[in-house]
């Protein structure tokens, strides 16, 4: 049985390096009034504040909210990438997080090498890795590009490879960021069938998205994140209605 329990989780980002990344966070945080200080009076961005979520097998959760509301940070925290500043996260069941198109791939390595690394990371055996490679090759239709470094790929090809690779593995807990639903129309039609397969195969889905129809179609529960907090939690139709009434002008 898969299970996710997010208990009173807060995540603070320290502001150390003056990189573009931190700058972006700073701007978002300033815009949403979430700059603060931690116990040692260092400047931090409070990306998540006291989040409680409990999910069990069969749950399909949609995360909505404006940019910088903490959706992606929450996904990263559940994936175990950011260990919480306060609180506890428990995930029971194998997990696959589809967070960005590159999925941690190394751009200087070929597509095939990146596939192999992903297989090794998952502890796959040689035949399993070969099967993974075949599956990705067939779906991504990269042809000879599969043996070229990923940095030579067009952005569309990167998405195709990342998508094919990420969806070739069947986890119990699937975390998905919205980039997954982007791409050109012809790819999207083909991708949808494959994605739906993985989604159906997963025990728990957590999807962060702006695409309202997708959330309504796939999710059985929606959480509206705002300023790093759970603003509203409930049935998709109900939350969506309030969300749309509050943020978007009526169409």
């Amino acid at each position: 049985m898969a299970h996710i329990r997010v208990e009173n989780v807060s995540v603070d980002f320290p502001l150390f390096h003056g990189s573009a990344r931190s700058l972006k966070k700073t701007v978002f945080a300033a815009a949403s009034g979430r700059l603060g200080e931690d116990r040692r009076h260092r400047r931090v961005v409070q990306a998540l504040r006291s989040v409680h979520i409990d999910l069990k097998t069969g749950d399909r959760l949609g995360l909505i909210g404006t940019n910088g509301a903490g959706k992606t940070t929450l996904l990263r925290a559940i994936a175990g990438i950011y260990e919480p500043t306060v609180g506890r996260i428990r995930v029971e069941g194998s997990l696959n997080a589809l967070l960005d198109p590159m999925l941690g791939m190394t751009p200087d390595l070929t597509g095939r090498e990146n596939i192999m690394l992903r297989g090794l990371y998952n502890g796959f055996s040689k035949p399993q890795i070969a099967a993974l490679e075949n599956d990705v090759q067939e779906f991504a239709e990269l042809g000879e590009f599969l043996d070229l470094p990923v940095r030579f790929y067009s952005s569309g090809m990167v998405v195709r490879l990342g998508f094919a690779l990420a969806t070739a593995i069947r986890p119990q807990v699937l975390l998905m960021d919205e980039w997954f639903l982007a791409g050109d129309a012809s790819f999207l039609a083909k991708a949808r069938a494959r994605l739906e397969n993985v989604v159906r195969g997963a025990d728990i889905l957590v999807l962060s998205s702006h695409l309202i129809p997708t959330v309504l179609e796939w999710c059985t529960r929606v959480i509206w994140m705002d300023h790093g907090r759970v603003h509203m939690d409930g049935a998709p139709a109900e939350v969506m209605q309030t969300y749309l009434a509050g943020t978007a002008p009526p169409i």
Binding site: P84, T85, I89, G93, S94, I169
Partner: peptide, 20 residues
């Protein structure tokens, strides 16, 4: 391609407390 033909991830377990 059906869910059954995809390689399954080995079961895993994650329990992460607050670092501080």
């Amino acid at each position: 391609l059906t869910p059954e033909t995809l390689p399954r991830l080995p079961a895993s377990h994650l329990d992460i407390g607050a670092d501080s």
